[in-house]
Design a protein around this nucleic acid. Structure first.
Lengths: 197, 197, 197, 197
DNA sequence: AGATAATCGAGACGGTACGTCCGGTCTTTGT
DNA sequence: ACAAAGACCGGACGTACCGTCTCGATTATCT
């Protein structure tokens, strides 16, 4: 029986130091050149302490950014009654976030991990993307009730229509991320979801 | 002066052996576990010969698949006059291609490279995606002329609306890729692009 | 701070395996064709473990033979009272040792290292040559007390006179090493050192 | 039949450039770190041109210094009638030569080659050491005729007695090379060779 | 309070792969 | 026809990290 480590005895000080070091190093050298040895050295921690609590380099980095973003549980999107205005606001904010060069390296690192590791992807969906998507769908449902969106629209698909183009542009660097682009996406998506006349 | 190798003296036999070995190994062990040493050994080639002509492991893999797909220059999409039917056909084919487990590993490897290396991304766009996108846009323009799509529609954006959701689903494994999904995407996109009444 | 390895944690098992492998390989392929990779492979050891504890290939080989020869500390030459007979005995033994083809390769390897690396040379003098030379000089001093050798003779020089010709012949292969040669050297040297009448 | 190169077609310009480059590089980086690639590059010559005419790196270096020292054929040592004074002069000159730091690297390189390659050693003896030794022995023979040295002395051994200690000290760096040391060697050797009373 | 036990920092270990250098051979190009 | 240039295969270099494995030296609970 491969003895499991006892979470009760875990050193919080070490955990924090490791996550901090991971965040710093991802920003400094990028995810590909990040090594567990470097994290351990920077954190002043034995390598075993990392291997004891995380499965892989990716899991550490993932946790590092998960810890940052935690607390989006009960989030809600603005609901002024005007779905187009509300979505523009949200999409423009998203575009701005992605365009911020300070987040470039870490977000890209996080995405590489999610893309390559289905387990992490599941965890990501559950802990981070899930709640946020729920909030977004809640707003769309509200618009459905208001008759601004077709009652039978597939809201998951609707979210993909809104966000996937943005995500793809950022990931593949195929074009600029501007407020106008955000507006155009909202515009097209709402046209696609408009209830039948 | 770091002295560039002379392309005229390049050994075509070695080039082919390397690209073949790279393709085989990506399929066998995946991109992450692929090593230049292994490629050189499989190809019966000195490591230096790889380093002489490629900047990185990614560049080799990229070239390996680029070589495979070359020749899609003069491609054209079907044009029956019915844009919806034509797009469904194409999108269903794309969905099927992505869902094919045999292509999973290499396409994913290629994508990781493109995502991480802007230079390769540019090369990819120019050599592979560009011509294909042009063909797709040609078909959409034909639909514009036929009045099936708004005359002022941004065709690049239209392509993103069609393909980005599919790409995202596949990349992040957030949902199944089915013919119905392809149809739904075509449906929504055409609604978004429909000319004003 | 280049961080020194901690000798307390050193693996004795690995150390022995490395020295054994080095000895074997020097005999098999000679010093020039000896590689650290081969030593590591033969010893079942990581290359780093060699680089951690030795500065160079030469240092390993040197240690390998140092370890063999250790324990000549309290050695003493025969002292029958007849310096000529005693020296002939010792010199004939030395000649025989050098002429032994089994020792050719390793001794030559050791010598090349000493010739090329002043640090190793110092270590060699301190650990191996020094004690032996002391024993030889002790015997010569005894002969001085007995009036067989000039009281003011420079004993270091005397040792050179005895051994350097032998060493040179062996090193440069300029002539055969025979018992008669040993005798002749003893004869000449004693003539050179004879006390004034 | 492995076609032999035709010496008649040999490029004298290339030969000189290679030997010059070899000499320079031995002085700059030492023999161990000297590479044929570097010689070829420095000489502005293809590697093949070196491999065509020399067996090994050592052979090139050897030739380089052979070419320098050539012309000692008809040399003769001074003969004032006083063997001790003449030998002191010669030995002091030899000591000075060995002590010159400018010759350290190349002479050492040459010696390593001779020690390791019996073929080169034979060539060295024939072309360089032989004539010089003959001259030295001629002077000793003259001393024999003058009754300063035993008539039955083995002159080869005598040369070894004179030069081997000096050579050993220099090679193994076991002591300083001073004029006094030269004198002491001459003194002892002559004592050893003195004719019987 | 002392004993017990797991985690901790540290870092040596057997390995794999890196990217570079060079050895010696083979091929192309220019003169 | 040669020789310069240099690409080629191969092997070793010395380094960086991998993930595992001891080591004492702290903790941190449980007698």
């Amino acid at each position: 029986m491969p003895k499991q480590p006892d979470p009760a005895r875990r050193s919080e000080r070490s955990r924090q130091a490791i996550l901090d070091a991971a965040r710093e190093l991802v920003s400094e050298v990028g995810f590909a050149k990040l090594s567990i040895e470097a994290i351990a050295a920077r954190a002043g921690v034995g390598k075993q302490t990392i291997y004891r609590w995380w499965r892989s380099k990716g899991a550490v980095v993932f946790d590092a950014f998960l810890a940052l973003s935690e607390g989006g549980e009960g989030m809600a999107l603005p609901d002024t009654g005007d779905i187009e205005a509300d979505l523009r606001l949200v999409m423009r904010a998203t575009v701005a976030e992605f365009a911020d060069p300070a987040f470039e390296a870490p977000i890209r690192a996080l995405n590489m991990e999610i893309i390559n590791d289905p387990d992490l992807a599941a965890q990501y969906r559950e802990k981070l993307a899930g709640p946020v998507d729920e909030a977004k769908k809640a707003r769309l449902r509200s618009a459905q009730r208001a008759g601004q969106i077709a009652a039978d629209a597939d809201l998951d698909l609707a979210l993909e229509l809104l966000y996937a183009p943005l995500y793809q542009r950022w990931l593949l660097r195929t074009g600029p991320l501007t407020p106008e682009y955000a507006d155009a996406l909202v515009d097209l998506t709402l046209k696609a979801l408009r209830p039948p006349v």
